[in-house]
Simulated scan of single mutants.
Amino acid sequence: MNVDEIKSILLKDLSLNEAYVSLYEDNYQIIAVSHIFSDGMTELERHKIIYAPLMKYILNNEIHSISIQAFNPKEWNKKRGLCDV
Results as ranks from 00 to 15, higher is better:
1 M>Q: 10
1 M>P: 12
2 N>V: 10
3 V>A: 13
3 V>F: 02
3 V>M: 08
3 V>D: 04
4 D>R: 09
4 D>Q: 14
4 D>K: 13
5 E>P: 03
6 I>F: 00
6 I>N: 01
8 S>T: 14
9 I>A: 08
10 L>E: 01
10 L>V: 03
11 L>W: 01
11 L>Y: 05
11 L>F: 10
11 L>H: 03
12 K>S: 15
12 K>Y: 07
13 D>P: 06
13 D>I: 03
14 L>R: 04
14 L>A: 06
14 L>D: 02
17 N>Y: 06
18 E>G: 02
19 A>D: 06
20 Y>Q: 09
20 Y>W: 05
21 V>T: 11
21 V>H: 07
21 V>M: 11
23 L>Q: 13
24 Y>R: 09
24 Y>Q: 11
24 Y>F: 13
24 Y>N: 13
24 Y>V: 11
25 E>G: 07
25 E>Y: 11
26 D>S: 13
26 D>I: 00
26 D>P: 00
26 D>W: 02
27 N>V: 14
27 N>Y: 09
30 I>T: 00
30 I>D: 01
31 I>W: 01
31 I>T: 13
32 A>N: 04
33 V>A: 02
33 V>S: 00
33 V>C: 05
34 S>W: 07
34 S>T: 13
34 S>G: 15
35 H>W: 03
35 H>E: 15
35 H>V: 02
36 I>T: 03
36 I>F: 01
36 I>K: 06
36 I>S: 02
37 F>S: 01
37 F>W: 01
38 S>R: 11
38 S>K: 15
39 D>N: 15
40 G>I: 07
40 G>D: 15
41 M>G: 04
41 M>Y: 05
42 T>N: 07
42 T>Q: 08
43 E>F: 09
44 L>T: 12
44 L>G: 08
45 E>A: 12
46 R>L: 02
46 R>C: 11
46 R>E: 05
47 H>T: 05
47 H>A: 11
47 H>P: 00
47 H>I: 05
48 K>Y: 07
48 K>P: 04
49 I>V: 12
49 I>N: 02
49 I>T: 11
50 I>M: 05
50 I>S: 03
50 I>C: 04
51 Y>Q: 05
52 A>L: 09
52 A>D: 15
52 A>G: 06
52 A>R: 10
53 P>T: 13
55 M>K: 11
55 M>H: 05
56 K>P: 13
56 K>V: 12
56 K>M: 09
57 Y>C: 07
58 I>M: 13
58 I>R: 09
58 I>E: 10
59 L>C: 10
60 N>Y: 09
60 N>I: 09
61 N>M: 09
62 E>Y: 10
62 E>A: 13
63 I>V: 14
65 S>Q: 14
66 I>G: 04
66 I>E: 03
66 I>Q: 04
66 I>Y: 04
67 S>R: 08
68 I>L: 12
69 Q>M: 13
70 A>F: 00
70 A>Q: 01
71 F>C: 00
71 F>L: 02
72 N>P: 03
72 N>S: 02
72 N>E: 05
73 P>Q: 06
74 K>N: 10
74 K>I: 12
75 E>Y: 00
75 E>I: 03
75 E>M: 06
76 W>I: 00
77 N>P: 00
79 K>C: 04
79 K>H: 11
79 K>D: 07
81 G>R: 09
81 G>E: 14
81 G>H: 10
81 G>K: 08
82 L>A: 10
82 L>G: 02
83 C>N: 12
85 V>L: 08
